[in-house]
Design a protein around this nucleic acid. Structure first.
Length: 596
RNA sequence: GCGCCCGUAGCUCAGCUGGAUAGAGCGGCGGAUUUCUAAUCCGCGGGUCGGGGGUUCGAAUCCCUCCGGGCGUGCCA
């Protein structure tokens, strides 16, 4: 919980006989005006304090009201039934919030909660030799956001791209190549498209004629057994794919600490299987090696296959070897699997297997998301990510050129890219992601309303205000030059804020201003919650609220044309909002723009 | 068959550790610019929170059940 919440809670905590941290956890913003700036519902305290909620609220309100001092943060406390409603002194609140921003500077919002702990995040993980389609976007952007959110909480994060670069699918590919492969086409300008075509063709053939399926299985077995020609082909296909993916990752601003596909764990599989055998977890059944969970106290869980009857390993085997490797190599506090909801059973099996083997499986979590419907590579119905991003960027560029062009000519391309990508990324991150979604062109490349470009626009506007204020009032800009940048010492903050100082908080008291400050003050706890709940959408929704509140302020009040003292105070607000917006957007993987 | 997930305004979604009169955006209609970016803002209309039952002082939120949709369920990943 952040300093602001604790400061607010501190006014009530002693009268409730609780610690400020506990009260801060209960703090909420009443839905309706007239019920205070904040409220503490007392229901959950009833049992602990052994009194009725309404009585708790009434007594605490009476005691807290009596203790209110002029100039303090809390201006009034009122019990309404079981609620403890409180009104803040806007000037004191403004000072409190802006002090926090000044104190932490560009690190405002971050914490060291996770310091000394490691987190492994397994995300993106596309299959090689297939095109990157819109269904792969989710794991990539959610995973990348979780990586950044955890770093902002002080964790050491190892982002792993667990490429699908092994398995029977390569049997299909190799078999297809050996049957139909044309060297010229692989050397052409769309090698991945060609590989995918081969794969699809072989898969279809296998569906009708079991002989093809058999050849695919045999080809993978050869690959796994180290057959040189199979290996050479595989390695070539893999290189071509990585080159293709690199382009997309660059566009999305995604970097991995480790690109370790399933093949990386090939030589780690024996260790995993030995462990299973040694602990008595695995057994042979119908010629295959399995873990029969029913015999280990998990009656409802279907068995997990570790080795097929022909001896080849499976996805599950490699995932198990990967998890063991990660536990033994990194000793992580968390391992997150950012993988679609359809794989829930598979991960449940994996986690249960790890527990049976004696690993702390409770540290593993499946960050699941609904799949994009109708995206099948095999059926050729997938919409390519390239296509989506390309279209979004093109539309963004048209938009920039259509109106009054504020972007310098040499920046238009870059800006269009940021806006287009921002729209697509935000469209994916803005909601909780368990529900399946139907792909919709119009929705994903929208620039108005609750979108990425809306946030970028708010940010650009903030930059523009700051720039223009600096032009008309260089003294104001100079006075605030340290605010929101490097973290400041308390004495420096004191010199910056207060009556007669550069930033006078008593000038930041209008309702629209208060609404903005309340959100700025809530940023640290929002980041904490987004990371703890593994939900980038928590941050996305918050940023929409903040940008909305700022737009309300913008239309109600002027910065540039205000009186000098007022202008400085509002400029500080502008800096603070700009910082939070830029920081939050960056965490989501969206570039904050200065002009658009 | 069994298991899991989802169902809130015409559409897309917030709200879900139970709590005050269920909120946004899009779309529709009507407005706002002699001043900092109209990719903005303000207003209006729009809901038996899938149906039913239960627990509770109180249910969109928890439990049961039914309906609808999706996914998974031993040799794919």
């Amino acid at each position: 919980m952040d300093a602001i919440a604790i400061r607010i809670a501190a006014a009530l905590a002693p009268h409730l006989g609780l610690e400020p941290e506990e009260v801060a956890g209960l703090l909420e913003v009443p839905r309706e005006a007239g019920r205070g700036d904040y409220a503490v519902p007392c229901f959950s305290l009833a049992r602990r304090l052994r009194r009725a909620p309404a009585q708790i609220a009434a007594e605490a309100a009476a005691a807290a009201s009596a203790a209110i001092a002029p100039g303090g943060l809390v201006r009034a406390v009122q019990a309404v039934g079981p609620y403890l409603n409180l009104w803040l002194e806007p000037a004191t609140f403004a000072e409190a919030v802006l002090s926090e921003v000044a104190l932490h500077g560009r690190q405002y919002g971050e914490s060291r909660r996770g310091a000394g702990q490691r987190v492994v995040i397994d995300y993106s993980s596309p299959n090689i030799a297939k095109r990157f389609h819109i269904g792969h976007l989710r794991s990539t952007v959610i995973g990348a956001a979780l990586v950044r959110l955890h770093r902002a909480q002080g964790y050491e994060v190892i982002g792993v791209n667990h490429l699908g670069d092994w398995g029977t699918q390569f049997g299909h590919l190799i078999a297809a190549w050996e049957r139909w492969g044309e060297e010229e086409r692989l050397a052409g300008d769309d090698p991945i498209g060609y590989l995918q075509e081969l794969y699809v063709r072989h898969n279809r053939a296998a569906a009708e004629d079991p002989a093809y399926a058999e050849r695919a299985r045999a080809a993978f077995k050869r690959l796994e057994d180290g057959d040189p020609s199979a290996r050479a082909l595989w390695s070539r296909f893999r290189e071509l794919s990585l080159r293709e993916f690199a382009r997309i990752y660059e566009l999305l601003g995604v970097e991995f600490e480790q690109i370790a596909g399933e093949s990386f764990y090939e030589d780690k599989i024996p260790h995993a299987l030995e462990l299973c055998a040694a602990r008595g977890v695995s057994e042979w059944s119908e010629g295959a090696l399995i873990i029969d969970f029913a015999r280990h106290g998990h009656p409802g869980l279907p068995p997990m296959l570790l080795r097929r009857s022909d001896g080849a390993t499976l996805y599950a085997t490699r995932d198990l070897a990967a998890a063991i490797y990660r536990f033994e190599t990194y000793d992580p506090a968390k391992i997150l699997y950012v993988i679609g909801a359809p794989q829930k059973l598979h991960l449940e099996q994996l986690f249960t297997a790890l527990r049976l083997l004696g690993f702390p499986a409770e540290r593993c979590a499946h960050v699941a998301f609904g799949h994009v419907q109708g995206m099948s590579t095999r059926e050729g119905t997938a919409i390519l990510l390239d296509e989506v991003l390309g279209r979004a960027i093109r539309l963004a560029e048209e938009r920039i050129r259509a109106g009054e062009v504020r972007v310098p000519a040499e920046q238009i391309e870059r800006t269009a890219r940021a806006v287009g990508v921002g729209a697509v990324v935000f469209a994916d991150l803005r909601h909780r992601h368990l529900k399946d979604i139907a792909f919709d062109w119009d929705r994903i490349v929208r620039f108005e309303g609750e979108t990425g470009p809306y946030l970028q626009y708010a940010h650009a506007r903030l930059c523009s205000i700051a720039e223009q204020v600096a032009a008309v009032d260089p003294e104001a800009a100079a006075a605030l030059v340290e605010f929101g940048r490097e973290p400041l010492a308390p004495a420096q903050v004191g010199a910056l804020l207060g009556a007669g100082r550069p930033i006078e908080p008593q000038l930041l008291v209008e309702p629209e201003t208060f609404a903005v400050l309340r959100l700025v003050g809530a940023y640290p706890r929002t980041l904490e919650r987004a990371a703890a709940e593994l939900e980038p959408s928590v941050l996305a929704q918050y940023l929409l609220e903040l940008a909305g509140a700022f737009s309300g302020f913008y239309h109600a009040h002027h910065v540039k044309n205000a009186e000098p003292a007022q202008r400085r105070a509002r400029l500080a607000l502008v800096h603070a909002v700009r910082h939070v917006l830029a920081h939050g957007l960056t965490l989501l993987g969206i570039e904050p723009l200065e002009r658009m």
